[in-house]
Simulated assay, not measured.
Amino acid sequence: MSGAQYTLAGRLAVALPPEAAFTLFTPRGEELWVAGWRPRFRMRTSDDSAPGTVFETGAHDELTIWVVVAREPGRRVSYTRATPGSRAGTVTVEVDEDGQGGSTVQVTYELTALTPEGQEPLREFAESYRDFLRSWEVDIAHHLRSRPPAAAAQSFIEGG
C-alpha cells in the first residue's frame, strides 16, 4: 500500500455564464488557457467531453491517461486519470451560476499514490492545491481579458 490518498476540493470564479465556462474545462477548452496542456486523442472525436472519450497528456514518466466518465453538458464533467507508477483517481468539475452573470466552478480531485515514489509528488500537490486553483482563476481571467468579451463568450458557446 502506498499510504497516500487525498480528496481536494476548491472553488474558483469564471467571468462567463455556466455553459461557456464549462467549455474551458473540457480537454480542448483547457488548451486555450493552460500553458503546455496538449491532450492527445487516440480516436477522432468531435465531442471531447463525451463519456468514454480517452486522451493522454504529458510524456514519459509523467504520461497521464484520462477517460471522461460522466457529463452533464454545460454543468458537470468527471474524469478518471492515471499516471502509471505514480498516482490515479478522479477529477470532477461542477459549474454553477454565480448570480452575477458569471460562474462559480467547484473542482474536486480524489487521488491515490500508486507507489511509495508517488507519495511525495501527491503530498506536494495537496499542500499547494489552493494556490493551484488560484492560478487557474488567474490564467482563465488573463485568457478572457485577451479576447473581446462578447466574442470570447460566443466562441466558447460555439466550441471554439
Rank of each mutant, 00 (worst) to 15 (best):
M43K: 14
W37I: 04
V34C: 11
E19P: 09
E19D: 13
E56F: 01
V68K: 06
V34F: 07
A50N: 05
A20G: 04
L63E: 02
T26A: 05
V34E: 03
E19L: 13
A20L: 02
G52T: 05
R28S: 12
E30D: 07
M43I: 12
L32Y: 11
H60M: 06
S46M: 15
V69Q: 07
V34A: 12
R42F: 02
E56W: 01
L32W: 12
G29K: 11
V34P: 05
F41G: 02
G36A: 11
E62Y: 14
P39I: 08
D47C: 03
D47G: 00
F25D: 01
G58R: 07
F41L: 04
G36E: 06
P17N: 09
F25M: 08
W66F: 14
R44G: 11
V69I: 12
A35E: 15
W37C: 01
R38L: 10
T57A: 03
E19R: 05
G29S: 12
E31I: 11
E62C: 06
R28Q: 13
G52Q: 10
W37Y: 14
P39V: 01
V54S: 05
S46L: 12
D48E: 08
A70C: 05
D61L: 10
T26S: 10
D61C: 00
A21N: 03
A59L: 12
T23F: 15
E62S: 13
S46I: 12
A21I: 02
D47L: 00
S49D: 15
T64V: 09
R28I: 00
T26M: 08
D61T: 09
R38I: 11
W33A: 07
T57Q: 01
E31T: 13
E56D: 13
G58L: 04
V54Y: 08
A20S: 06
G52A: 11
E30Q: 15
A50T: 13
V34D: 02
R40K: 11
T45Q: 09
G36Y: 03
E62A: 11
E31C: 15
M43F: 14
V68N: 04
G52K: 04
G29Y: 11
E30W: 02
W37T: 08
E19V: 10
T26H: 03
T57Y: 01
F55P: 11
D48F: 10
E31Y: 00
A20K: 01
F22E: 07
E30G: 14
A59F: 09
S46K: 13
V68S: 06
L32M: 12
A59T: 07
G58H: 05
T64L: 02
R42Q: 10
V68G: 03
A50M: 14
S46F: 10
M43G: 06
R28V: 08
A59V: 09
P39H: 05
G29L: 11
A50F: 10
R44H: 15
T64N: 00
F22R: 07
T26I: 00
F41E: 06
L32C: 10
H60D: 13
R44P: 09
P39D: 07
T45F: 01
L63M: 13
R28D: 13
T45W: 00
P18T: 03
G29V: 11
F55I: 01
A50E: 14
R38C: 10
F55R: 01
R42M: 08
T64Y: 00
P51Y: 01
E30Y: 06
A50L: 15
W33V: 00
